[in-house]
Design a binder for these strands. Structure first.
Lengths: 167, 167
DNA sequence: TATTGTTATACTCTATAACTATA
DNA sequence: TATAGTTATAGAGTATAACAATA
């Protein structure tokens, strides 16, 4: 086993900047969400996904996609949201194995309230130091990396798909 | 309380791309580190910081900076690393309140081994879809955001500094 | 008094594997 | 047989507050 070709400093810089930027942002945002509506970031993402979905409802599996990495993790969060009345869960009409998750009015209200401070914070922390052009460039580059990772085959090729299929 | 000025779609796109990119990358990297050396990402970062530090040692507080958000969290991780013999902790000579954390040879070896697959993975997932120029641009933009966030005053101005001071 | 670090404690979240039920 | 989801369980990590010791 030989020494790996080292990354050059430009590459390393970009990697570390990504890690620290997202870590700082995530931490700040989680705190805000917790203070505002008692939501974890994952819960916030789930509510936001539902809000975007047609009819403000989605199957558990479709909801999981892109947010959570295990089935049981989704069940855990969905139950928590249901307990708080932010979401309802009903067996799906067409496929009786499935569960439809739907945003309640209270869920919608809670989301809107959380979004208030959320948007303000993201604006202050993330967009403030960038020009509109730069924001667009950054978004474009990150989107390409994201798309590449979405389709990247896990190196230690896991045979079966779990919660996180094609998309 | 009025509706916040909504973010436009370019801004939203950049934000979501950042969140999902970092989430996917982080998840993949954590799995690799776990498989390779039984390290969590935080532990990996701590070892890497020590490896960079002069004399491969640092005070607890300085080590925490940029990696961990609470004092007790650092103690927890440092103890875990010490238990595995990857790190030693000795009272500091000059300031007897401080603890010097030093990388052991085994810690260094473990880090190198983990770095092997780590670099390969980051290259495959993160750099592969970008040209060198684009990588540089991305790193530059993210660095600016990071620097801005480092000095950003918490909106709900916390009076006291905790683990995470100026830098 | 302020700072460094630890401890106790409680909590949140995640993942794995075994399981049920439907397709 | 494969898929959708749940449950039990166990483990890792985090944060807060109270604490001891040094500056």
């Amino acid at each position: 086993m030989t020494t790996p070709e080292p990354l050059d400093s430009t590459q390393l810089g970009a990697y570390f900047a990504l890690i620290e930027t997202s870590s700082l942002l995530r931490h700040a945002v989680e705190q805000q969400l917790r203070d505002a509506g008692g939501l974890s970031y994952v819960q916030f993402q789930l509510l936001a996904s539902l809000d975007d979905a047609p009819g403000r409802r989605a199957r558990m599996t479709d909801l999981a996609d892109g947010i959570v990495f295990s089935r049981s993790g989704l069940t855990y969060q969905a139950q928590a949201l249901e307990k708080r009345g932010l979401v309802t869960r009903t067996p799906s009409a067409d496929d009786e194995r499935s569960i439809d998750v739907a945003l309640t009015d209270e869920g919608h209200t809670t989301l809107r309230a959380a979004l208030q401070g959320h948007v303000a914070l993201v604006r202050d922390l993330f967009y403030a130091p960038l020009t509109p052009d730069e924001t667009a460039t950054l978004g474009d580059l990150l989107s390409r990396v994201r798309d590449h990772m979405r389709q990247a085959p896990p190196r230690s090729a896991k045979p079966r798909r779990t919660t996180r299929p094609s998309r």
